[in-house]
Design a protein around this nucleic acid. Structure first.
Lengths: 208, 208
DNA sequence: CCATTTAGGGTACGGTTCGTACCCTAAATG
DNA sequence: CATTTAGGGTACGAACCGTACCCTAAATGG
């Protein structure tokens, strides 16, 4: 199927071209066989090269996995705008849930598990897998709510912004992989997120 | 060091005695070498037996790891009673943080990572590693606060009760293993948990 | 008290996979 | 055109999991 498999002894690739081929092959393995199936030998074979070329660029399987994941997941996260804080929050949670429950999400979770012991790898994964862009989305969501007068200024706080995603992620970690039902998302919003915003409104946790 | 290593050809253990020796050996390996170092061969050797006896009882390494973890962590979680909701919450979070940041916590996180793909194993781990007792502790904590008049009845809700631990756990998952600073714990309590309780107080999230 | 069944112990093996080493040659470099 | 650099092919060592086989100690029961 993929023409990379047997690139009949044409020319010999070098540098960036080869690196690209390796990343592409690794990403394809991730997509079809998951992280567990992303063997170094298979990646080398699919890329039409050998492990030498791989180990010359990445120190090990896990790092290559993280690098290849970027090839797979370069989706741009766009902040929804439904007009209400509740609608925005729910939309953002649904988008996250969709990603996490997809095969791609399974790969991400496997990578996260593999990097559990390695802080360096963990930050690398977080940087490349758009962890910070998610936080930013929630913050702008809160800012909009403040601008509409739906919430007090004090709610625009990173810790508050991270709560819904943390709960969703925790649900995935605690349960198996299947998928989180939609009712749970609204429960997070209605039972936790909105009361939290409300509570911070009461006597203002505003920071100067 | 450990006398289990060479139990000079005395008698041959059977049944419960042998099972106990295996679990003890596995727990010791977990403690000294972590989950990654808990090799089946090493466990067998330390227990003074062979892999046959192990595989006759547990289907694989992961399940043995979970079973052995119980040997390591049979700490009884006691609910603190400081007189205020804030004090109780902080105490409970500190206890959890202490556990999670210990070597034992590292093992637990490794096991959790290893079981990320296996829902059955995950529930097994959750049941044995006192996941539910933690939830219960937070609920009683909330009930006490209600009894003292510190909060409205509606706050006694599983989802609310799980929030602080979820956030702490998320912090561990997101960052590396080092340890979570104490300021973060009070931030979770002051910026999220207490406002959340307050917010639910406002117009009652009481469920019929 | 002896014969039979059950379960441990010793050992070896097949199968994977990671990571490394060596040698040869195509491509870049001057 | 000579030299350096980096790819390609291949084989290998090491570690581990899980399984198979055979022998024997311990339980079991007539």
């Amino acid at each position: 199927m993929a023409p990379e498999q047997q690139r009949g002894g044409a020319t010999r690739r070098r540098g960036a071209a080869l690196e690209d081929a390796i990343l592409r092959a690794a990403a394809e393995e991730l997509r079809t066989a998951g992280y567990a199936g992303m063997t170094m030998d298979r990646v080398a074979q699919r890329a039409g090269t050998n492990k030498n070329a791989i180990y010359r660029r990445w120190p090990g399987r896990a790092v290559l996995g993280v690098a290849a994941y970027r090839y797979l997941a370069d989706a741009e996260l766009q902040v929804p705008d439904t007009g209400t804080l509740r609608g925005d929050a729910l939309a953002l949670l649904r988008a996250a849930n969709k990603t996490w429950s997809s095969p791609q999400g399974a790969v991400l979770r496997d990578l996260l598990a593999a990097a559990a012991d390695d802080p360096g790898l963990l930050t690398l994964l977080r940087e490349q897998a758009g962890g910070s862009s998610t936080d930013a989305a929630w913050l702008t969501l809160l800012e909009r709510a403040v601008a509409r007068g739906e919430a007090a200024a004090g709610v625009v706080h990173p810790r508050v912004a991270s709560v819904p995603m943390m709960l969703l992620r925790g649900e995935y970690a605690l349960r198996g992989l299947p998928e989180v039902p939609d009712e749970l998302l609204s429960e997070i919003v209605d039972e936790v997120f909105l009361p939290l915003v409300r509570g911070r409104t009461v006597e203002g946790g505003s920071t100067p």
